[in-house]
Structure formats: C-alpha cells, structure tokens
Design a binder for these strands. Structure first.
Lengths: 124, 124
DNA sequence: AGAATAAGTTAGGCGGGCCTTACTTCGCCC
DNA sequence: GGGCGAAGTAAGGCCCGCCTAACTTATTCT
C-alpha cells in the first residue's frame, strides 16, 4: 500500500476526528487547514485505495486496511512527538507540527532507533 | 529570502559540487539524481533570486547571498546527520538520506534543541 | 411545509517540480 | 577548418496538491 504523505495526513485526520458515526469532511478540513473540496478529493482517492468507505453526502468510515494504516501513521506521529518533547525538550505545540512533517520522511531504520533510544531512556 | 525545499537542495548541491570554476549543470544533476533540464530550470529561478550567477552555457557561481544560504542549509544538514549517527546510531548512509529530508521540515526551535543536546553530550 | 443554513460535491484552474525530446553551443581532434 | 560528442538550454507535457466558485443535498427552525 503506497500512498503519498499528504494522503497519510488525511487518513490520520479521519482517524482522529471520527466518532461512532464516522468522520466528517468539514472536521477533517478544519483539522488539516485545507478546504472541504480538497478533503473531498482526497477522500475519493482513499476510497479508490479501499482505505475508507463513504456514502454520498454522508460521513466516511475507515475500512480494516484503512484503520490499520491510519493507526500506524498515528503511532509514528506520536512516537516522534514524544521523542521531541521528552528527549529534546521541544515545546509541545512545536513538536506537534514538526512530528507531522518528520513522520513522512523518516526511514524505518531511524524510526526504530528512535524507539530504541526512548526504551533505553525509560529504564534509567 | 524564501525558497522551496527543492531549491534549497539545488543550492546545496551547487555548493558541494563547485570548485574554483563554479559548478556544472551535469554534476548537480548527477548529485541530485534529476535531469539536466530540471537543474537548468532551477538555476534560472535561483538566478532570479540573486543566489547564483551564470553565463550562458557556462558554469554557475554562488553570489554572496547564495553562499550564505547554501552554507546555512549545508550546516543544518550536517548537524542533523551527525545527530542521527552519533546519538541514535543510525547508519551513515541512511542518516545521509534522512537528514536530506528532515532538514527541510524541521523548525528552528527543534534545530536549536538538537544542537544543544549534542553540545551537552560532548561535555560528558 | 418552506426558507435559511450547513454540509458535501463538482468543475476548473494554478503553481511546483519533475520529465522527455529536440535544439544550440562548446571543446576537442583529425 | 569540419565533424563529433558532451554540455547546456528551450519547449511542452504530466502529476500532485491545493484553491475558488458554483452547485446539490441535508438539516434545522419557525
């Protein structure tokens, strides 16, 4: 499953804004700071990839695949953010923004090292 | 001075491939893994921004502004790479690639924290 | 129910960044 | 000096990601 960084952001936002009734275009747009039209377009692509399902003029829902991917992205995000805050002492808000960017460009290898580093820190 | 990440990469590559006779389109293209046409186009934009100078069919040279910016970018790059390698233990080659991406998305604040962290490490 | 408002959708457009193809200029060598 | 290959340039095209404007559907309120 290969989607662009930007689509990963949309997927993550769907996860974060969803409740039992799914996620709304407006909320996702708000969260990402883009227009509803852009969200709608992105949802089309995510649906094509089988990552979400939606009925016309209704909310969207993550499929199983979509949920798995969204959670993976979310976890990466949280891990990087935690690293920035707890290890480097970066401000919470800044860390949030930086994590959002870094999560898309960091290699699996470096990601592992970050996790390891934090594990080690925890034990001390 | 506001240029895109991609243009920063071109500028950095000019710095890295240049000798006394300036930098060549071909070398920059090779270094970045893009076509000569793309390099040429980017050089046009950098020239418009007064960051490089060039004569037709000749090599390009960094202006003072261009040199300053290129060095700033280069330093960021090296710092991030050093952090990945020496603190996280990331493989040299992987760190190089990751640094190349991260350098464009990291905030000034986080950048400072990284430097501080490494300074502290050095003292111990 | 009917109007006003909110949510979602569609169409069309724009800039960034890359490409290929074809052309021009340069430098070298017989 | 003519020819050739390499370097540089120009033109045109493609995809991505975003936008605005205009439209359709849903909802809410009196």
């Amino acid at each position: 499953m290969q989607i662009s960084p930007s689509l990963e952001d949309y997927l993550e936002a769907v996860l974060e804004t969803a409740d039992e009734d799914g996620a709304r275009t407006t909320d996702v747009a708000e969260k990402l700071g883009v227009s509803k039209a852009s969200v709608n377009q992105a949802m089309g692509v995510l649906a094509d990839h089988g990552l979400i399902e939606r009925e016309k003029y209704g909310p969207v829902f993550l499929t199983e695949n979509g949920m798995a991917l969204a959670q993976a992205v979310y976890k990466r995000h949280q891990t990087i953010k935690a690293f920035l805050v707890s290890i480097l002492g970066v401000d919470e808000k800044v860390a949030e923004e930086d994590a959002c960017q870094i999560e898309h460009v960091v290699s699996k290898d470096t990601m592992h090292r970050i996790i390891e580093f934090m594990e080690r820190r925890k034990d001390e």
